[in-house]
Structures are given as C-alpha cells and as structure tokens.
Nucleic acid binder design. Structure first.
Length: 883
RNA sequence: GGGAGUUUAGCUCAGCUGGUUCAGAGCAUCUGCCUUACAAGCAGAGGGUCGGGGGUUCGAACCCCUCAACUCCCA
C-alpha cells in the first residue's frame, strides 16, 4: 500500500546515498562537452541560510539539466577561509577559553584557527547535501589548502614583478575592533543621531575690537588636537578679515593657519571647517592641496595616543564626551545641536569605521581591469538579468586601486620580506627571497634571519578572485587536463551584492592568467527577504532554519517553493506559504503516481479511440511545453520554466489528461493507453528532475523495471518534437465546453450526480462528435443532440453559452429563471455590440489599415465576424426567451 | 548632491521587439463538493481605469516628458 501523502524524509536520504554510491556527480575529463559550475564558496564560518538555499538550488537545477542532456557536468564545491570573519570567531573562541590572542604567537594562533576550521568548516557543505546538491564532492576545495594557497602567493609575486602591486600610504577604512583595514564594500553606512558641536577657536594676535574667535562646527570634537588648519570659503564675507591669520586650538593651544578653499560649504554649520588630514578622507585631500602636516592622534584600537597631548589612552567615543565637558569648562564650547549623519560601520564587527592613514599593499586596477570591462559590455560575458550591466559599467569605468592587505593572521601571509634597511624583497618564500638578495644585490653574507616577512595577510577576495582557475589547479599547472577541459566554466550563480568585488575581479584574473573570462553567464539571484521586506539575518531572527524547512516540507518542496517566486535579479519575499505550495506539488505528483500505479492492465482490451485522442492531445501539449521550457532556460528564466512545468503536470496532466483516460473504478486499462501514460509520466519526471530530484527519482525507479545502478540523474532530458497545433486548438474548444457546462451546474447548484442533456446548435456537428464520450466522462451529460435550429420552448428551458459561433444549450427545465436569463443575455448583447463597434471603428480607420501588419488586420476581421455571429445568436436567444 | 532600479488584483510577482478573445499566474477570498489518486484535494466565481498627469501613435502596461512614493549604489 502506497502512502496517501508523500513522505520525503524516508526517501531523500536513501536516494542521495544511492547517487553518491554510484558516483553520478563525479566528473573527469572525457570527450563529451563539459558543463562546469564553480560554487560561490561559502565562508567556513557559515551555516546554511536561505540565500544559500536559493543560490544552490538554481545551480543544481542548471547542473542536473546539463548532466541529463549528456554533457559532462561538473559542479565544484568548496569553502572560503574568510579571514576577518573566521579570525573573529577564533578570537571569540579563545576568549571563552580565557586566552588572549595577543598572548599567542602567530603560529600558535594559526593552530587554533585550523582547529576551528576543521571542526566547523565543513558543516555548510554537509548541509548542501540535504538540499540535493549534485556537487562532485571529491573535488571539494578550500582557499587555504596548500595548492590554492600557493596559487595566491604566486599571483602576488607575479603581479608585483609586473609592477601592478605597490605599497603606499592611503586613507583606508580602519576597523578598530577587528584591528584591520576593510574595503569600501565591507563598510555599511548607517544613519546615526550625533551631536554637532560648535567650538570657538581663538584668533592668534587678535586686536581690540575685532572678534576674538572663529566658531567651527564638528561631529568629531575629539580630533581637534589633530587639526592642521581651519578652512573657510574664500567668498565668505564673514571671514574675509581672517584670511592669512592663525587660530589657536583650544585646550592644547597650538597655532594653526586659517586657509581658504572653495570646497567649504558656506551654509553648513558656521562656514568654518576644521581640517584634520589624518582622520578624514576629505580633509586629507585638502591637506595635500594646502601642504598641511598630518598628525595622527589615534592608536589602531581607537584610543588616543600621546600626540593628542590630552586624554591619552581614552577611547575615541569616551574622549568625545570628555572633551565636550573640557571645552565647556574652558569656555570654548558655544553649543551642541542634535544632528543626523551617515557613519560607516564594519560589516564584520559593526564597529564605527575610522578613516586612517596607513601603509598598505595595493593592486593597480586601471590596466588590469580593461578586458574585464570590455567583455562584459560586449556580452562575451553575459549578466542575467542584463540590467546589472549598468551597475557594472559605473564601477568599472573608473575602478579604484584595490587595497589587498589586511592586518590579520588568518589568511595568505603577504610574501614580502624586509631587509634591515627596509628594502622590500617579494618572493615566494624566505628562501627564495634570500636567493634573490644574494644574486641581485650580491649580498652573500645575508642569512634568512636578516629578513623579516610582512606581518599582514591578503584580502580574502584576493584568493576568491582566482577560484574558477585555482579549483582546477589552473595557476600551478596551466596546461593540465583539468583546467584545459573545464575552463572557462559555463555559468556562475551569485548575488548582485558581490558583483564588483568578486565577479568583476574573477573576470579580471581570468583575462590576466588565461586570456579568457572564467564563465560565459552570470546569473544574479535576488536577496531573500522576509514578508516585511527585511533582509533575513541572524540578529533579526527572521530567518527560518533551512534544515527545519527541509525536514518539514521535503527538499523538493523547499526547492520548488523558493523558485516559484524568484525571477532573476529580483529579491525574493520569502513566505512559508511558498514552501507549502512546493510541498503540495510534491504531493500532487505523488498521488498521480499512486493512481497510475494502482491500475491493472488488461492486454485483451481493444484500443480505445477516445483515449487515442487524449494521448494525441497531451503529446502535443507536452511538446509545446518542452519547447517553451527550452526557450525559458536559454534566457535563464528559471522560475518561469518551473511554472510551466508545474502547470503542465498539475493542470494538463493531472486535471485533464488523467481524468480523460482514467478507467472506471476497479476497471482495468488497455495496454496502449497504459503504455502511453507511463511514457508521459516518465518524461514528466525527467523534465521535473532538475527541480525536484528526490521524488522524481523515487517515481522513476518504480514506474518501470530498472537495471541496478540506473538513475534518472543520467536519464535523457526530454527533447521537444513537432507540436500538433490542430489538436491543441480542438481540445481548447473542448475544454471550454467542459468548463461552461460545469459552470452552469455550479451556478444553478445542481448536483454532479444529475445528468444533464446538452444540445449543440451548429452547422458542423462533425467537429464535436469525436468528443462526445469525452464530454460525457468529464461533465455527466445524459444526451448530446445537434440542431440547426432550436424550438423556443426548449431554448427557454435552457441555459446557453456561445463558443465562437456555435451555441450550446444545457436543459435544466424547471430551474430556469427567465427574467434572470433575459437580463444576462441583454448584458452580453450590449457588451458584444460595443465590442463590435470598437472593432469596426478600428477597421474603418484608414491609417490603421494602412499601417498595421496584415496578420493584425486579419485578426481584427476575425474578431468582427465572431462578434457579429454572437450578436445574431444573442438576439435569437432573446426572442426565444420571449423578451 | 550624482546615478540606477522599482511602482500591474488583498499579497508576491510575470507580461521578452507597442497590436490575438478587450491585462496573466500563484497565494489569499467567496460558492459548492470528504465524487474510491490527492481536503497538502476537486469543480467554479469574484477581484485591476497597469503610481498621478501630459505627450508620441491608427493603437500604449510597454516609447518620451513630468510629478510622486519606495529601494539600492556612489559622494
């Protein structure tokens, strides 16, 4: 006995293990066409969230389809070492054990980091299996494993030797909590309520009558000790008398010049701007223009250093409060105002970003990025949806140099070695650095002990940008079989948020090292949000646990549910209702299977003509959908492809086809119909398999005898054949009859058990005769009669409906409300009159006839003819009803 | 301040180059059904002057202008 509802839990684990045991996901180069996808490596710190679910479901759909199409499908999984996030986790873990990071040596710390990685790093990949992901797990890579690590180092050395990497002072986004620089992309701007503080600076050497002070407004009073000047707009009348004078910083009494610059906004604050080059990017730029000194008063952890002279050791935010008090006491504080402004915070630690001057490593982007820019704009690499090309352009037209150093330990340590005099030697390792020194500088007395390696590691993206090459060892062995076979990969599925700092950079690296983009298509998914449109996040607690969802609704249900409403590039408003719909779909498929499975075949039964008609129709419908699905896939409209399949299975196959051919209760079915139905079912399962891998495998295995180690995973994906348009049109008309008769029954509240007589007024009874038994089966009619003219009495005892120019009468004698019928018919007539008139107006418009395409005009003529026939029938109907 | 995107049924979204039966789907709602595959279901129904205004066109949800609201990116 097959269960009445589909129970995914029992089935999913069994088939996933079966797939693994039979190595269906394993790929090695052969003479087939490759289809390659590299996973966007999730952070080792990550656990599966809804975004991963969506992203990986789409990848799996693409990969499974390609595999069924006979391509050598290879989906490479792996994880990313995520230096900042992981280091933060490890530091936290150490803290719990009572260990302070700074008490450890670098090597000791790294041991803990590896311990953490080995313990938690693989979790997310295990979770992907529950989703059904058909990755080649033997190829699992990690950005810190030796081969990938070495590739990163090699690339650094190579780019340095090519003159693309330099070391320079830059204003960077400093995360005082993480103790590292973060990229612009990792800074989240937040609007914060702040205090705008008005401070009086005494004018040096002020004479009797003139104002003794200049007032400036700032949100960062704690940085006044780092001021290098006060700037005013040269056109500002209020301050013209101060040009060339000097002001005195309160509390520390240091003199600074008053300078003029058009940059200063006259109507913001007081029009006076304190210039602090070390602690603000705009001020830094001003400082360069005006040749101002740079005075950095902050330590890396955000506390004030001795250069501040006062408040040394205090945290910047504590100092901000303290200094307001001090200024008040000294009489320099004018007032404070509430003020909202945007403040950058670190994506990883949440700390307020401190603009900071520091010595960092940079990669020049102008030359390197050119091919990547051009080849996206000319569609060599296609973005789906294409609207993201705009965003890509705005970023790539003027790329900033990439700050690639991070002040962390977890990651690839920068292979730069300093001699005692500060000379930089870049080499793969200390040994090679020493050789280089000895050979190039002829300093043969040098030893490794005389070289110190740079303390910093490389930005995680500096390893991620090599991912499509490094997973195939494409940088270490550029001529190996793997990289030559799999590269360039086909499709990349990722989020638009990382279009710039990952996707663009992979394309850059691809052109630099392989002369070719790393993929042909980039499918950009949306962000998964909750019902209220908020991004799902752990802190909000608004994200369901994907594994719970899988447990509750089945992996197939979750997969289809997520895809129902997720057009490419659009955010997905997640609602558990979607997943429920997916679960219901699984159940529908399951029950169709139960029905078919329950039939007994009687091979002695003759072929049934009416069934052959239905088979012909469904065959046409199937082929039409296959054509549509191919087209949708080619445009990466994955969600629409799923919807087309959903409708084909639910509406066309279950609601129509199965009802049409279903034998009466406990009656056997003939061989021909059974065979055709099993064939259809098999094709439908193959068609749905990329979306719902588990249930389709279960049914596919059971619907026919299978050889051991056969699988739907490697069964052929159905290909569209010629569509019989004629039969589709006839059935459309047939379904319209069915639906109209049912509607009559419904509106008149007539029991389905009451058989109703149907009369068809038509000049072509032949069109309907073949469908008679099908009509009877679908709507319980007692008789079907054809007339060329219907007696008034019978007409007035019937409800009628029109399909094209044929009129159908359902006799429900005794239950007819003549008045109501007349009102309805009049309404119908009025509408058709109006419709005819509008069509007539169009056709009598010379410009329309002259400009519109012939087929458009032909359609209008047809509409006119249909409307006129309808009007004729409706008028007759009114007469019959005695109106 | 600069740029981009969005605005279509109660909700979430389709609607690809302007032209089929006068705008589609799913969910939700309403009506009637436990009809022996499925109530996680079946059969039906209602619901939108396509954000507002203007324009181009024989014809606009779709093209142009303008206004508004929301979202995102950059400064």
């Amino acid at each position: 006995m097959i269960s009445k509802t589909y129970a995914p839990q029992e089935i999913e684990e069994k088939w996933y293990q079966y797939w693994l045991d039979n190595q269906f996901f394993k790929s090695t180069p052969d003479d087939r066409e490759p289809y390659t996808v590299v996973i966007p490596p999730p952070n080792v710190t990550g656990v599966l969230h809804m975004g991963h679910m969506l992203n990986n479901t789409i990848q799996d759909v693409l990969v499974r389809k390609a595999r069924m199409e006979g391509k050598n499908a290879c989906w490479v999984p792996g994880t990313d070492h995520a230096s900042i996030a992981t280091e933060a986790k490890v530091v936290a873990m150490l803290k719990e054990r009572g260990i302070n990071k700074h008490d450890l040596t670098r090597d000791e710390f790294l041991e803990y980091a590896w311990e953490w990685t080995h313990k938690y790093g693989g979790i997310i990949l295990q979770q992907l299996r529950k989703l059904g992901a058909s990755c080649d797990w033997d190829r699992t890579r990690f950005t810190m494993e030796p081969d990938l690590h070495d590739s990163v180092i090699d690339v650094f050395v190579d780019l340095y030797n090519k003159g693309q990497i330099y070391r320079g002072v830059r204003m960077v986004n400093w995360d005082p909590q993480g103790g590292t620089a973060v990229s612009d992309e990792e800074v989240i701007t937040k609007e914060l309520q702040q205090k705008l503080v008005y401070i009086n600076y005494k004018i040096a050497g002020a004479q009797g009558q003139e104002a003794d002070y200049i007032t400036i407004a700032t949100v960062r009073p704690e940085t006044i000790m780092a001021d290098a000047a006060i700037a005013v707009n040269p056109n500002d009348e209020r301050y013209k008398h101060l040009h060339g004078r000097k002001a005195i910083i309160p509390l520390i009494n240091r003199e600074i010049p008053i300078i003029t610059d058009e940059y200063v906004t006259m109507d913001f604050g007081t029009g006076g701007l304190k210039v602090t080059p070390a602690h603000d990017p705009n001020d830094y730029a001003l400082g360069i223009t005006h040749n101002l000194p740079v005075l950095d008063i902050l330590n890396d952890d955000g506390t004030l250093n001795e250069k501040a002279q006062i408040l040394v050791g205090q945290d910047r935010f504590v100092a901000r409060k303290t200094i307001i008090k001090l200024l008040e006491e000294s009489g320099n504080l004018v007032k404070t105002e509430e003020y909202k402004s945007n403040v950058g915070t670190s994506e990883r630690t949440g700390a307020v970003i401190e603009p900071k001057l520091s010595l960092q490593w940079f990669l020049k982007m102008d030359e390197l990025s050119k091919p990547a820019f051009k080849n996206v704009m000319n569609d060599t690499v296609q973005l789906h949806p294409a609207k993201f090309k705009n965003m890509y352009r705005s970023w790539m037209e003027n790329p900033h140099d990439w700050c690639i150093s991070r002040q962390l330990w977890w990651g690839q340590r920068i292979p730069a070695f300093y001699m005692q005099d500060g000379t930089i030697i870049v080499a793969k390792n200390k040994h090679e650095a020493l050789e280089k020194v000895q050979h190039e500088k002829l300093l043969f007395a040098m030893t490794e002990a005389d070289l110190t390696q740079d303390e910093d590691v490389l930005d995680t993206w500096f390893s991620a940008w090599l991912w499509p090459m490094s997973v195939f060892n494409g940088l270490k062995e550029p001529d190996s079989g793997d990289i030559n076979y799999y590269y360039p990969t086909n499709d990349l599925v990722t989020a638009p948020e990382i279009l710039f700092f990952w996707v663009a950079r992979m394309i850059i690296a691809g052109y630099e090292y392989r002369g070719e983009a790393p993929f042909k298509n980039v499918y950009l998914t949306g962000i998964v949000r909750d019902k209220l449109g908020r991004k799902m996040s752990k802190s909000l607690g608004n994200s369901p646990d994907p594994l719970d969802l899988i447990e509750k609704y089945g992996a197939d249900g979750v997969r289809t549910g997520m895809l129902f409403s997720s057009a490419a590039g659009n955010d997905l408003m997640f609602d558990e209702k979607l997943v429920e719909q997916g679960r219901n779909f699984s159940n529908k498929v399951w029950n169709a299977f139960r029905l078919v499975k329950g039939w007994t075949v009687d091979s002695s039964l003759p072929r049934v003509t009416q069934n052959e008609l239905s088979i012909g129709w469904f065959d046409a419908k199937l082929n039409q959908t296959l054509t549509d699905v191919e087209d949708l896939f080619s445009k990466f409209r994955i969600s629409e492809a799923l919807q087309a399949i959903y409708k084909l299975i639910w509406d066309d196959f279950c609601s129509q086809y199965l009802e049409l051919i279903k034998p009466a209760f406990e009656q056997p079915i003939d061989q021909t119909t059974f065979e055709a139905t099993i064939n259809f079912f098999e094709k439908l399962m193959s068609l749905a398999h990329p979306f719902m891998p588990f249930i389709t495998e279960e049914i596919w295995q059971d619907i026919r005898e299978r050889e051991s180690s056969a699988s739907i995973c490697i069964a052929p994906f159905p290909k569209p054949e010629v569509v019989d348009q004629q039969i589709l049109a006839s059935f459309e008309e047939f379904f319209e009859i069915i639906s109209n008769v049912r509607n009559v029954r419904n509106t008149k509240q007539i029991s389905p058990k009451t058989a109703l007589p149907l009369t068809i007024k038509t000049t072509l009874p032949d069109r309907f005769q073949p469908f008679e038994s099908l009509i009877r089966k679908m709507v319980n009619v007692s008789t079907i009669a054809y007339v060329s003219d219907l007696p008034d009495t019978e007409s007035s005892a019937s409800i009628s409906f029109l399909i094209k120019s044929d009129e159908f009468f359902v006799n429900i004698a005794g239950q007819i409300d003549t008045e109501q019928e007349i009102t309805n018919t009049r309404k119908d007539l009025d509408y058709n009159d109006g419709f005819r008139d509008s069509v007539l107006k169009k056709l009598s418009n010379e410009k329309f006839v002259a400009n519109a395409k012939p087929d458009v005009i032909e359609r209008e003529r047809q509409k006119l003819a249909d409307a006129e026939a309808k009007i004729q029938s409706l008028k007759q109907r009114l007469t019959d009803l005695g109106a």
